Simulated assay, not measured.
Amino acid sequence: MLGSSKGTRPAAALACVLMLLVTVAACGSSDKSEAGTDKPAASTDKAFPVTIAHKYGSTTVKSEPQRIVTVGLTDQDSVLALGKVPVGTTEWLGGYKGAVGPWAADKLGGAAVPTVLKDTGTGPQTEKIAALRPDLILAVYGGLTKAQYTTLSKFAPVVAQPKEYNDFGVPWQKQTEIIGKALGQEAKATSVVSGVEADFKAASAKNPAFAEAEAVMATPYEGIFVFGSQDPRSRVLTDLGFALPADLDKVIGDEFGANISKERTDLLDTDAIVWIAGDPAKDEAQLHKDALYGDLKVARQQREVYIEETADYGNSVSFVTVLSLPYMLDRLVPQLAAAVDGDPATKVPAPAA
């Protein structure tokens, strides 16, 4: 379920790229090129140029971008929330048209559906990205290597993942703010972030039990994979008021998540646990067969939330973006409220349609 941009480089395609380099030179690297020059009527030059720091230094966007490619696996949602439609997106989950989930589809308006860059195993699809003639490449929610960053910078300014977070660990607020700055939409980014933060505050106020409870998010992937405090999924829980297990990051290390040993199954014995499961009924039965897990209080009292990872709801939980979060909160909050209501007889309801 965890992805990265991937691609291949056959000789013929690479030859095409070399020719494309000539035609896209105007896009160039962040140090040498201008972005697109055709600006919509509502735009302003006052926001540009902007310089954005990231893991590999900094990138300057000289003018308002018009042909945006998102290499970051969820960056398209921030772009759409800010009124732009990417020309290219990178597919991660769901197999959605244009790699745009149902929580974001209305933001396309009448624009062309983005070209989808597939995830094939060896990094960004360089040739396809070049063919899209981008004037900005976003890789904020991602894990670009230095070599990949350098290659992509030949085509357009590249905004890589911020250095202060793990790869694939940038908070949704920071992701939206970074992309807002790159698009010259800092004020709008602040506004849409504030709107979603207000949704979290309202949910927390309505459910004060969240602030007195501990929770964790996990998936039965090759055993038990638990998400750490730097993963956006875990931040959903803490933003709602929950505490995470005290030893969680100590066990996981400097990663967004990790498989835990059976000896550390105790990390799961929280007031509520959210399972992102391939087959919820099957996975629940399998987990409860394991005495180490089945004997935990959280399991015995069925304070578990099972979410089908390939359903729209499950995809929204993994996306954790400014557009997917309201969709997700409508479904997750009632389930968590039932899990921590103090009555073991309360069944966690099915998610809202």
Score class of each variant (00 low, 15 high):
Leu292Ser: 12
Pro162Lys: 09
Thr126Phe: 09
Leu325Val: 13
Pro171Leu: 07
Thr70His: 04
Ala243Pro: 03
Thr89His: 03
Leu183Ile: 06
Ala81Thr: 02
Ala26Leu: 02
Ser5Gln: 06
Leu244Cys: 09
Val100Glu: 01
Gly253Cys: 06
Asp77Gly: 03
Ser316Gln: 08
Cys16Ser: 15
Phe48Thr: 09
Gly142Ala: 11
Glu212Thr: 15
Lys39Ser: 09
Ser153Phe: 03
Gly57Tyr: 07
Lys282Arg: 12
Val226Met: 06
Ala281Ser: 10
Arg233Glu: 11
Asp119Arg: 09
Thr51Ser: 14
Glu284Gly: 05
Pro157Asp: 04
Ala105Trp: 01
Gly101Gln: 03
Val159Lys: 04
Lys262Ser: 13
Gly184Ala: 06
Pro40Met: 01
Asp295Ala: 08
Ser204Asn: 09
Gly294Glu: 06
Asp249Phe: 04
Asp249Glu: 09
Ser234Asn: 11
Gln301Val: 03
Pro134Gln: 08
Leu292Asn: 12
Ile224Met: 14
Leu144Ile: 02
Val317Thr: 11
Thr59Asn: 06
Ser43Thr: 10
Asn207Gln: 10
Asn166Glu: 12
Glu308Asp: 15
Arg303His: 04
Ala111Ser: 14
Ser5Asn: 08
Asp341His: 03
Asp341Ile: 01
Gly195Asn: 15
Lys6Leu: 05
Val226Pro: 07
Ser316Ile: 08
Leu117Glu: 06
Gly223Cys: 05
Ala246Cys: 02
Leu325Thr: 11
Val170Gln: 12
Phe210Pro: 02
Leu332Tyr: 08
Gln301His: 10
Val71Asp: 04
Val79Lys: 00
Val333Thr: 12
Cys16Trp: 09
Ser29Val: 01
Ala35Lys: 10
Asp330Ala: 12
Pro114Gln: 11
Ser58Gln: 14
Asp283Phe: 02
Val113Ala: 07
Val348Ser: 05
Glu308Ser: 10
Ala339Lys: 01
Gly314Val: 08
Thr8Cys: 00
Lys297His: 04
Gln76Pro: 05
Tyr313Asn: 00
Leu14Ile: 13
Ser58Pro: 06
Thr51Arg: 12
Leu248Val: 10
Ser29Lys: 11
Ala277Cys: 11
Gln302Met: 06
Ser234Ala: 14
Val170His: 09
Ala350Cys: 02
Phe242Tyr: 15
Gly123Thr: 05
Ser261His: 05
Cys27Asp: 14
Ile276Asp: 14
Leu20Val: 07
Gly184Trp: 01
Thr151Pro: 01
Gln161Phe: 10
Asp106Glu: 15
Asn259Tyr: 07
Leu329Pro: 11
Ser153Gln: 13
Tyr313Gly: 03
Asp249Asn: 14
Val71Gly: 01
Leu136Ser: 06
Val113Trp: 03
Lys46His: 08
Phe168Arg: 12
Val158Asn: 05
Pro49Ala: 11
Trp275Met: 13
Thr37Met: 09
Trp275His: 10
Ala338Tyr: 00
Glu284Tyr: 10
Lys163Pro: 00
Val158Ile: 05
Ser63Gly: 13
Glu91Cys: 01
Tyr313Glu: 06
Val87Tyr: 05
Ser153Thr: 14
Phe48Gln: 00
Ala47Cys: 02
Ser318Trp: 01
Leu296Glu: 05
Ala311Asp: 14
Tyr141Leu: 02
Lys39Leu: 10
